[in-house]
């Protein structure tokens, strides 16, 4: 069994959600992760906060936030165990992030450590 990273991609990270929306979204995310963990397929995961986010550019210039010219941003990442990329993609389908138009999930197999 391999490990896959499920990366949550937000098309527009600058959209501000209301506290009520945030609460609903948090619960849906926790239920989604709980469902994967209940199948003993959860490895690790973390949300990535937007507060204080920085971008370090090619010329080593630092700008605030992942926004600006880069619109798309990463909201969180979880690592799961799966038999195949298809199975990992099935897990990704349940992620509430996909409820937002333009958002997507990237599924990447994790390189094995030797």
């Amino acid at each position: 069994m391999d490990e896959y990273a499920l990366i949550m991609r937000h098309e527009d990270g600058s959209k501000i959600a209301s506290p009520e929306q945030m609460e609903i979204w948090m619960k849906a995310t926790m239920d989604w992760i709980g469902g994967i963990a209940a199948q003993n397929k959860f490895v690790s995961g973390t949300g990535l906060l937007f507060d204080d986010a920085k971008v370090v550019h090619h010329n080593k210039m630092v700008t605030n936030g992942p926004f600006g010219e880069i619109k798309e941003t990463i909201g969180g990442i979880i690592v799961v165990k799966a038999e195949s990329a298809d199975e990992a993609a099935e897990f990704a389908k349940g992620c509430p992030v996909l409820g937002g138009e333009g958002n997507s999930m990237e599924v990447r197999r994790i390189a094995k450590k030797h």
């Binding site: 619960k27 926790m30 709980g34 963990a37 199948q39 959860f42």
Partner: peptide, 28 residues
């Protein structure tokens, strides 16, 4: 039940067990 569900969601991430998975589903 919402509280129990969230506690099971967290518990399963920390330490999986079949009984916790079943109880989580009941709470769900």
């Amino acid at each position: 039940w919402e509280n129990i569900l969230q506690l099971y969601n967290s518990l399963l991430q920390l330490a999986y067990s079949p009984v916790a998975a079943l109880n989580r589903t009941y709470a769900l």
